[in-house]
């Protein structure tokens, strides 16, 4: 087995000397992202509470940061960066397509059910 690791992250902006160093580097990055999430979650800055595309701006930030974390866990801890493009695409795009579709239909339907209750056709608070 050949063990060539690609050692640069952030599109080559940061290059590590060895695989071990890269692991610690990614850990530091993930820890920083988690700390940002927790701090934002506790103080909930007023500026970020406005609605953007049907959701609070803060929630969008959380979701984007989560996907960033997921990317680095998959690419560097699970070594997706070193796999062939075929394997990478088969795993990632299959998952992303199915999950995005499932999430869309369920959330859309949930919103519809809420409207049915909200418009008073069915009484829930009795």
């Amino acid at each position: 087995m050949a063990h060539e690791h690609k050692l640069e992250i952030f599109r080559g902006a940061l290059k590590f000397k060895s695989n071990t160093q890269k692991i610690w580097g990614v850990l530091i990055f993930l820890a920083i992202v988690t700390i940002i999430e927790v701090v934002l979650g506790i103080i909930k800055p007023e500026v970020l509470m406005g609605q953007v595309l049907g959701m609070k701006a803060l929630n969008w930030i959380f979701i984007i940061l989560t996907i960033v974390k997921a990317y680095y866990i998959t690419w560097d801890f699970m070594h997706m960066r070193d796999e062939t493009p075929g394997l990478r695409r088969a795993v990632v795009w299959t998952g992303i397509f199915l999950i995005a579709y499932l999430t869309f239909i369920l959330l859309e339907e949930g919103g519809y059910v809420f409207d049915v209750y909200d418009n008073g056709y069915i009484k829930r608070d009795f």
């Binding site: 199915l98 999950i99 499932l102 999430t103 369920l106 959330l107 339907e109 949930g110 919103g111 059910v113 809420f114 209750y117």
Partner: peptide
């Protein structure tokens, strides 16, 4: 993701 999307469904239902 099925579990989490179902959670999202229920949450949107009682948003």
């Amino acid at each position: 993701s099925g579990f989490l999307a179902a959670y999202g469904f229920s949450r949107f239902k009682f948003i």
